[in-house]
C-alpha cells in the first residue's frame, strides 16, 4: 500500500507491505527498511524498530494530519493515500478566493468586538479581542475586505473553531 507524506513543503513516498505480527517491509523514497511496529499499551506511545534502530514515539492522529513527537522534537505530517492526495490536489486548484470565515483559534471569551457589520477592514487590522487564561489576544483580519455577519457578542464563551465573524474580500482591494 502506497502513502504520500508531506512535511514542511517536502513530499515523501512510503510503500508498506504488511508481513504480519507487527512486521513490515517499508520503502521510504526508494530505500527499503525492515520495520517492527508495536503499541506499548500506553495509547499513542508506540515502539518502532527500524533496521535494528529503536525509537519510542508519540503519534497523534487527526484524520490525515499526524503529529509525531520523539527525541524531544516534533514534526507535523500530512499522511495520505494516493487517492486522498489526488483528491486534495484537485480541490486546491478550484478554491475560492476572497471569502473567509474568521474562526476562534483557541477556546476563550470574547472580550470586545472592534468592528461592526459592513465595516471595511485592512489586512492585519484588529477585529476583536479573545481572552484565554487571563491573556488578551487580538484576532486580526487575514485579508482586506468587508465585515459580514458577526456571529458572537462580547462576553460570550467560544470553542476553538467556532465562527466569530464572516469576512468578504473587497473587490476594490489590491490582492495581497
Amino acid at each position: 500500500m502506497k502513502y504520500l507524506v508531506s512535511h514542511d513543503g517536502a513530499e515523501h513516498t512510503l510503500e508498506i507491505e504488511d508481513l504480519g505480527d507487527g512486521g513490515f517491509r517499508v520503502e521510504v523514497d526508494g530505500k527499503v527498511f525492515d520495520a517492527d511496529f508495536r503499541s506499548t499499551g500506553a495509547g499513542p506511545i508506540v515502539s518502532l524498530i527500524l533496521d535494528g534502530r529503536s525509537y519510542e514515539l508519540l503519534v497523534l492522529t487527526d484524520g490525515p494530519k499526524v503529529d509525531v513527537i520523539h527525541h524531544g522534537l516534533g514534526v507535523e505530517l500530512l499522511v495520505e493515500t494516493e487517492r486522498e492526495y489526488h483528491a486534495r490536489m484537485v480541490s486546491a486548484a478550484g478554491g475560492e478566493a476572497g471569502e473567509e470565515d474568521v474562526r476562534a483559534v483557541m477556546p476563550g471569551i470574547v472580550v470586545r468586538i472592534q468592528v461592526e457589520e459592513g465595516d471595511r477592514v485592512e489586512r492585519g487590522q484588529a477585529l476583536l479581542v479573545l481572552e484565554a487564561m487571563k491573556m488578551e489576544n487580538e484576532i486580526r483580519a487575514t485579508t482586506t475586505g468587508i465585515v459580514g455577519r458577526i456571529a458572537v457578542e462580547a462576553g460570550q464563551t467560544v470553542d476553538a473553531g467556532d465562527l466569530l465573524l464572516e469576512l468578504t474580500g473587497d473587490p476594490d482591494a489590491a490582492s495581497p
Binding site: M1, Y3, V5, H7, H12, L14, I16, D18, D21, G22, F24, V26, V28, F33, A35, F37, R38, S39, P44, V46, L48, L50, R53, Y55, L57, V59, T61, P64, V66, V68, H70, H71, L73, V75, L77, V79
Partner: peptide, 20 residues
C-alpha cells in the same frame, strides 16, 4: 534518521497495523 522514523511511524499508525 529521526525524521525517517517519524514518517514510518506516522504511516504505520494510519495504516492501522501497529497493534499486535
Amino acid at each position: 534518521d529521526l525524521l525517517r522514523a517519524a514518517l514510518v511511524a506516522a504511516v504505520l499508525t494510519r495504516h492501522g497495523g501497529a497493534l499486535g
